[in-house]
Design a protein around this nucleic acid. Structure first.
Lengths: 219, 219
DNA sequence: GCTTGATTTAAACAAATGTTTGATTATTGT
DNA sequence: ACAATAATCAAACATTTGTTTAAATCAAGC
């Protein structure tokens, strides 16, 4: 049985610890200890603590970003062929599903989600800059697609609603990763919803948010 | 002209710096320097760095919490008198407006908002525990009111939707505090919405999210 | 005016941080 | 088998961290 290489063990340990404690509050010694490696291993393999964090981020974010764009373009292509505007719900699904699915698809995904959530609310920080750089192009692309889907909505309002959605997604990711945190509160008995159910609820919640003149009832 | 006391200058400096850089990444020396005070002043006035952070949090959070509860109870009372269930939109307004209003009402509110946003996405941390302890009772109270407003909605789905709303609010607060961050992206010309307009958009976005069988069109 | 208590100050504290060094051990290519 | 490169290791590096100390300064009260 081949043991996993040090480089990867470092990534896993860093991912888990940074998720729980944050970047600044996680020491290299804690990471290397959990990974069963020497302190110098980080600087050998990644150049610096910052380099390690960058690698942690890229490892999962780039595949997610690729799948997002693939789904986005698929919907836009389908829309062109059928001579219609892209559908809001399909766009939301392209934005939300790839990242929330990593919670139970990938091994460390549950940890990674926490890092991403914190990324959205960090004003500044080492990881934030890299995160923005990585995700900016597809964010701009998504915005254009949303504009096609809602051609009569003023851009700044559209941007607000997309921000609401990203915030909801970010927070939902945390709740879904650690539902126990809510269950500890005195809410009475709750059936924990599955990830897929939660994702669906989120997408439809956001989709309704993008509507106007909704006439449904509150049920 | 009386100069503001050291205690308060420390709170202001800590609030601004913790908002920008996070709790762990903000040193006491940076805080005391910006406040024009000695390093030991923090331990003298607040006992510890943690004590200072706690004071920063309580100073604004407790009044916000009080106003939230006041509005909540007002709506519930009105509902009882008129023999109807509490209205979703009124509940959302009670939850959202008091905290988002501090952005432009209070002097340092713009900074405080960042701290609160980070609080929501922090898995653990010094401030998180205090935040939860402070806000938990009214959160439970809000949940009960939402249950009255949506008596047929399963509790776990209701809890999900509230989580979506809180996430949207949290992220929106950041965008509203620093709209320039979005304007830097290549979106073309945007009219920056006012705070009041943004708050309204958020409340109505969330209110639509709580509906079912919405039949509006995407505009 | 002196005293009591509150506040401020500079200096020092131990502990923890990211990084570097130089030697040692594994692994690989020929 | 041997040389060359890659990887690991213990030890030490200079900084920075939150906190404490003990003296100095300030502000009232009587």
């Amino acid at each position: 049985m081949m043991e996993t290489p040090t480089r990867e063990r470092l990534l896993d340990a860093a991912e888990a610890l940074i998720a729980r404690q944050g970047y600044d509050n996680t020491s290299l010694r804690a990471i290397t200890e959990q990974a069963g490696a020497n302190v110098a291993a980080v600087n050998y393999h990644f150049g610096s603590k910052e380099g390690l964090a960058e690698a942690v981020l890229r490892r999962r974010l780039i595949p997610i970003d690729k799948e997002r764009m693939a789904r986005l373009e698929a919907e836009c292509r389908a829309a062109r062929n059928e001579d219609r505007a892209p559908g809001i719900e399909a766009l939301l699904r392209a934005l939300i599903e790839p990242i929330l699915r990593t919670i139970h698809t990938e091994k460390g995904g549950r940890h990674f989600i926490f890092i991403i959530s914190r990324m959205h609310t960090d004003a500044d920080g080492v990881l934030k800059r890299l995160f923005l750089k990585t995700i900016q192009p597809s964010f701009v692309r998504f915005f254009k697609a949303f504009q096609e889907a809602c051609p009569e909505l003023p851009s700044e309002i559209l941007l607000l609603r997309i921000s609401f959605t990203i915030g909801a997604m970010s927070h939902a990711a945390m709740v879904m990763s650690d539902w126990g945190l809510l269950e500890r509160l005195p809410f009475g008995k709750l059936d924990v919803p599955t990830i897929d159910r939660s994702v669906d609820e989120l997408i439809r919640f956001a989709a309704r948010g993008f509507m106007v003149t909704g006439t449904g009832t509150h049920v």
